[in-house]
Amino acid sequence: MERLLVLPTSRAGWGLLIAFVLLVLAGTWPVIGWVNRATLVMGLPLLVVWSYLVIFACVVVMLIGNRIVERDDHE
């Protein structure tokens, strides 16, 4: 037991972990550098639009996560 780490135990769990990591990467460097331009999209700065895309992507990933957790019937 001494060397064990808690990691996902199913493919869906790994998929969720990867999605969480991708979300964090999307809001930080280097990805944030790629959208760091003084252009407007739908009247808003690109960085603002990207920030809200990341924010709403968090909701989508958690909604998918809820389905997985409730389907597998564990907390």
Binding site: F20, G27, S51, Y52, I55, C58, V61, E75
Partner: peptide, 23 residues
């Protein structure tokens, strides 16, 4: 626009709450 780091980390705190909160 540097201020929007706040909105992003608040959303990441929701991910933290989603995973750790139930436990």
């Amino acid at each position: 626009v540097a201020v929007f780091y706040v909105a992003i980390y608040l959303s990441y705190l929701a991910l933290v709450a989603w995973y750790f909160g139930p436990k």
